[in-house]
């Protein structure tokens, strides 16, 4: 029972932490959705551990906790790929800005 309560608290804390971040606008709303969803899943599984059995049955995984690892793994991979994509885009934008900055600076310098 104690363990059960412990996991529920962990799940709720995670959900609360993510929500505060969103509220403070530390996360973009679009990005926070996937985190909110993961936090919600953890909380849900903590409250209703039998759900895990259902999910693992559905996925055809014999040992229920493995299903949990599998789902976590997929979630993390998706998040990582998205991050990689965003980093690439941001890098390209920074490069654009630096180039633009250098060209404008030259214009300014030669004009006066």
């Amino acid at each position: 029972m104690i363990q059960h309560i412990f996991y529920i608290i962990i799940g709720l804390l995670l959900l609360f932490y993510i929500l505060t971040k969103v509220k403070k606008k530390h996360f973009a709303e679009k990005e926070s959705l996937i985190w909110l969803f993961s936090g919600f899943s953890v909380a849900l599984l903590a409250v209703f551990p039998q759900l895990l059995g259902l999910v693992s049955g559905f996925l055809g995984v014999a040992y229920a906790p493995t299903a949990l690892f599998l789902m976590t793994f997929f979630a993390i991979v998706i998040i990582l790929i998205r991050k990689e994509e965003q980093i690439t885009i941001i890098n390209d934008k920074i490069k654009e800005l630096a180039q633009r900055n250098a060209i404008l600076e030259e214009k300014l310098r030669t004009k006066f």
Partner: peptide, 13 residues
């Protein structure tokens, strides 16, 4: 003429 990049972009940049 010269351009001064504010950050290092590498050869291709």
């Amino acid at each position: 003429r010269f351009l001064n990049l504010p950050i290092n972009l590498g050869y291709s940049g």
